[in-house]
């Protein structure tokens, strides 16, 4: 039984309210997405666009090793970033949820989110300063005497991209895991202890399975924007750390080949969608198997 509203024409009122945001999304999201899809089937003919539908761009994107390499690298880097970020974030979320007193939790969450709200560009740039040949990390390590030569594997390559993005997306991973941990009824843990399990087994058999939805959310939230990141690979990635977004930008703004850029964007979107769907599917299966 539903009891809601003031009785009259709830549907009309709901539609009136949803219309502005829905129309906005339609005009500025649906139309552009359709357009970019259409563009990917057209081709650039010097300064004009040839509107005859063709699969030329897709053939090129899939056969040209440069594109394939960029796409593969983007997926691998985004995967590495996601894994690193989530693995590093879980203990923090667990600590705040289980070991921080209730009245201090929002302070901790606040502290974790603050760095995230400071200029992304400047943060990425500062990682370049930290990881550089004469950077903060190298000069500190040399000063302390741990190393003699500056480490070179930490800047202008994929490692630097992973470290920087793991930093940039940390709160995105911590928050959903924290929320799912907070939802766990603490008496379940006591029940597990009461039934004879120790701390470790209680964690493995109760806490971790119940935190899975949060981990899945964190994985998606980190993976999706990471695969399309532009700034970090450009600033700290060097030639070996460039990703698909950099190529899309190059096609659009440097080579003036919008159709090719559109094709790469569509491919990137397709990859994101497929991976997201696989994850959601696995999560469903997991939840179903447990219920």
């Amino acid at each position: 039984m539903k009891l809601k509203g003031f009785g009259t024409s709830d549907t009309a009122r709901g539609l009136t309210l949803i219309a502005p945001p829905a129309l906005f999304a339609l005009l500025l999201l649906a139309v552009p997405l359709v357009a970019i899809f259409a563009f990917s089937f057209w081709s650039q003919d010097f300064l004009t666009i040839d509107y005859t539908p063709t699969l030329k761009n897709y053939r090129e994107a899939l056969s040209e090793p440069l594109y394939g390499q960029l796409i593969l690298r983007s997926v691998l880097i985004a995967g590495a970033v996601t894994l690193t970020t989530v693995v590093l974030a879980f203990p923090i979320a667990y600590f705040v949820s289980f070991h921080v007193p209730a009245n201090r939790k929002s302070l901790w969450i606040f502290m974790i989110t603050i760095p995230f709200w400071t200029s992304y560009l400047i943060r990425v740039f500062l990682w370049k300063v930290i990881l550089g040949y004469n950077g903060v990390l190298n000069s500190t390590l040399i000063g302390v005497g741990i190393i003699d030569e500056p480490l070179t594997f930490i800047l202008y390559n994929a490692n630097a991209v992973v470290i920087t993005l793991a930093h940039a997306f940390a709160p995105f991973a911590i928050l959903p895991i924290f929320v799912s941990l907070e939802k766990i009824d603490r008496s379940l843990l006591e029940a597990s202890r009461d039934l004879g399990e120790n701390h470790v087994m209680t964690f493995l058999r109760v806490t971790l399975p119940l935190a899975v939805p949060g981990v899945v959310a964190a994985t998606l939230i980190v993976f999706i924007p990471t695969i399309g990141d532009y700034v970090t690979p450009r600033l700290v990635g060097g030639p070996g750390g460039l990703m698909i977004a950099n190529m899309i930008q190059t096609q659009f703004l440097k080579l003036n080949n919008a159709p090719m850029g559109a094709t790469l964007a569509v491919i990137a979107m397709a990859i994101v969608t497929v991976i997201a769907l696989v994850f959601i599917f696995l999560n469903r299966r997991w939840l179903k198997a447990r219920s």
């Binding site: 999201l29 357009a35 970019i36 399309g228 990141d229 659009f252 990137a268 979107m269």
Partner: peptide, 19 residues
Amino acid sequence: FIMLPLVLPEIIVAVSMLV
């Protein structure tokens, strides 16, 4: 659909609007 931009890489939003 309205929430979709949350899970769309920003570069996609940018280039599709540019197109």
